[in-house]
C-alpha cells in the first residue's frame, strides 16, 4: 500500500492509487485483449484444421504454390522485429531515449519489409489467377476444392497483414511520443503494451508459416 504522495505522478490517472497499480492494470487489460485476438484468429485456425482433416491431399498439392523461401525470410524478419521491439523496452528501462527511438524505427522498418515481401507473394499469385473464392481461375491444382485452400490462405495472411499494418501505426505513435521524451524507466507502459501486441502478431506468424508453407 503506498499512499505517499510521491507515488502520485503526472501520468497517473485520477482513479488509480499509484503508478504501479496503473501499470499492472494496463498490462492485464492488454493480456485480456490478446485473449480476444487469439480466439479471433482461432476461428480461422479452426477452419484451417477442419478442412485439412477433410482434404489432406488438397493441402499438400496447394502448398506447392507457396514460396517457402519468401515465407522463411518473412519469419526471420518478424523475429528480428520482435527482438528490436523488446530492446526498445530495454532501452526505455535504461532511460536511453535515443536507443529507444532507434529500436522502434528498426521495428517499423522490419514491418514494412514484411509487407513488401507479402506484396510480392500476393501479386505473383494474382498473376497466376490464384484469388480467394469465386475469382479463382488457376488450373494448376487438380482438386475440386483448391479455391477453398486459398480462401483460407488469404483470410489468414490477410488478417495477419492487417494486424501488421495496425502495428506499424501504433509503433509510429510510440516513436513520436518517445521523441517528445514521454518515456523513462518509471513510465513506459505504452511501449510495453504495444510490444505485447507486436509479439502476438509474431507468434501468429510463427504458426502460419509451418501450417501454410511447410506442408509436404
Amino acid at each position: 500500500m503506498s499512499h505517499n504522495s510521491s507515488a502520485v505522478q503526472s501520468h497517473v490517472a485520477h482513479h488509480f492509487v499509484d503508478s504501479e497499480q496503473q501499470f499492472d492494470a494496463a498490462k492485464f487489460g492488454m493480456w485480456i485483449f490478446l485473449v480476444t485476438e487469439i480466439l479471433f484468429f482461432g476461428g480461422l485456425f479452426a477452419a484451417y484444421i477442419i478442412y485439412r482433416a477433410w482434404y489432406p491431399d488438397l493441402y499438400t498439392m496447394a502448398s506447392t504454390q507457396l514460396d517457402t523461401t519468401m515465407g522463411a525470410i518473412n519469419t526471420g524478419v518478424l523475429i528480428f522485429s520482435s527482438l528490436t521491439m523488446a530492446l526498445s523496452i530495454w532501452a526505455a528501462q535504461h532511460n536511453d531515449k535515443k536507443k529507444t527511438g532507434i529500436f522502434l524505427l528498426v521495428t517499423i522498418a522490419c514491418a514494412f519489409a514484411f509487407m513488401v515481401i507479402k506484396y510480392f507473394e500476393y501479386t505473383h499469385k494474382f498473376h497466376l489467377g490464384i484469388f480467394p473464392g469465386e475469382a479463382y481461375t488457376f488450373t494448376g491444382i487438380d482438386h475440386p476444392k483448391a479455391h477453398i485452400f486459398f480462401s483460407i490462405y488469404y483470410m489468414m495472411t490477410g488478417l495477419h497483414g492487417i494486424h501488421v499494418i495496425i502495428g506499424i501505426g501504433l509503433i509510429f505513435w510510440l516513436w513520436m511520443k518517445n521523441n517528445k521524451g514521454s518515456f523513462n524507466s518509471a513510465y513506459y507502459t505504452p511501449i510495453e503494451i504495444v510490444g505485447l501486441y507486436w509479439h502476438l502478431v509474431d507468434i501468429i506468424w510463427i504458426f502460419l508459416f509451418p501450417l501454410l508453407y511447410l506442408i509436404d
Binding site: D24, L34, I38, G42, A46, I49, M85, G195, H199
Partner: peptide, 27 residues
C-alpha cells in the same frame, strides 16, 4: 522471454492459457 510472462502476474499467464484452452475446445 520477449513478452516476459515468466516474471509476470499469474493472472496474465492464466488468461493466456485460457485462450489456448478454449481454442482447443472449439476445434
Amino acid at each position: 522471454y520477449f513478452m516476459n510472462l515468466r516474471n509476470d502476474s499469474r493472472f496474465n499467464l492464466l488468461s493466456f492459457v485460457f485462450s489456448v484452452l478454449f481454442l482447443l475446445i472449439l476445434v
